[in-house]
Computed example of a mutant assay.
Amino acid sequence: MALQPPHSDEKLPAYESTARVVLKQHGPRRHYLVRRVIPAILTILVICSLFRTAFVCHHHYHPHLWRTPAPIVEDEAAESKVPLEIHVMSKCPDARDCLRELIVPTMIQANEKVDFAMSFIGSVDPNSDAVSCKHGPGECLGNIILLCAAKVYPEVKLWLGFANCMITDYPDIPKRDLVQSCAMEHGLDFQQLNSCISEEGEGIDLLRASIERSQENNVTRSCTVRLAGKVRCIRDGGEWYDCPGGSSVDALVDDINNLYG
């Protein structure tokens, strides 16, 4: 899905309208909204998310993924992991298909050999702190929530499971019920996510840095898969292309095995 300017006349529910204000304003008023309005919204989510569940997503994810805790590895082994990165838009059907058809099955087989990352595609204003996303401020807020999950819960099985759960139902991002449900399914504490999103604009800073990373790598299509710093495959418009070696899980796992170590 190629990056295009968002529609300015899009009508948003109250939750997403707040995101529009937060993402477009800056200066003292922006900081007030980031520190006051967003925490108020997410406090509701915290109250609804007091009870955690085990790492099993009954309809979004694979329950056999990472059944045992990842072993502690030596620094040398960690450095030998193969960089695997996807660049996506959170409200994009190609991002959903990319995770479901390629990334999640690959991680089931090769997670211990991979240094996995997810970056987002959007636009930044070089003259201000403003950012924008193709599918509007709701997508920007969804991206922030996923980035904060990765920051607060760096163990990939937690934040990737949460991200997959959210993007599986991408039309509902960032609706409260979806965020609450995915957080509960994957054991994420919304109080900690709330702190990341609201503290001095930390969440927006994460989003800006993520978008800039995609731009630095000349990525404009969601979903773009990069392996060891090179484009490995692109999912766009419901099709796979630019996939040397093929778009199958087995082909990607073979490439990872060949690069590992």
Rank of each mutant, 00 (worst) to 15 (best):
H186V: 14
V82D: 00
N111P: 11
N164H: 05
R226V: 12
L227Q: 01
Q25S: 08
V249L: 08
L146Q: 07
M184I: 14
F51D: 03
K157N: 12
C223D: 00
C92Q: 05
S222R: 00
L65V: 15
G27L: 09
A117R: 06
D236A: 07
P69F: 15
R176F: 08
Y153P: 10
G138M: 02
L42G: 13
I108K: 10
L50V: 11
T106E: 12
H58V: 06
L23E: 00
P71C: 13
I173Y: 01
M166W: 04
R67T: 10
P63H: 07
P171L: 14
F162H: 05
L206V: 04
K24Q: 11
E16C: 08
Y15E: 08
G246E: 12
A70D: 08
I256M: 04
S80V: 03
D254Y: 06
A19R: 00
A19G: 03
C196R: 09
G161P: 07
G27K: 03
G142C: 05
E155S: 14
G238Y: 04
Y61P: 01
R67C: 15
L45D: 12
L33D: 01
A2M: 11
L193C: 06
P63A: 09
L50W: 10
E239I: 05
Y153T: 13
N258W: 06
A130V: 15
L147P: 06
C57V: 08
R35Q: 11
A251H: 08
G136H: 02
P39H: 04
V152F: 09
S210F: 07
E185V: 11
V225D: 02
I103K: 00
M89S: 10
R100G: 15
V104L: 14
S181C: 10
E112H: 05
G201V: 03
P28E: 00
R226N: 11
E199Y: 04
V34T: 15
V21I: 09
V88A: 06
H135S: 11
A163K: 01
L207F: 04
A78W: 05
V21R: 02
R20D: 01
L146R: 06
Y241I: 14
L146H: 08
I167D: 00
Q25G: 11
P171M: 08
A209S: 07
V56P: 13
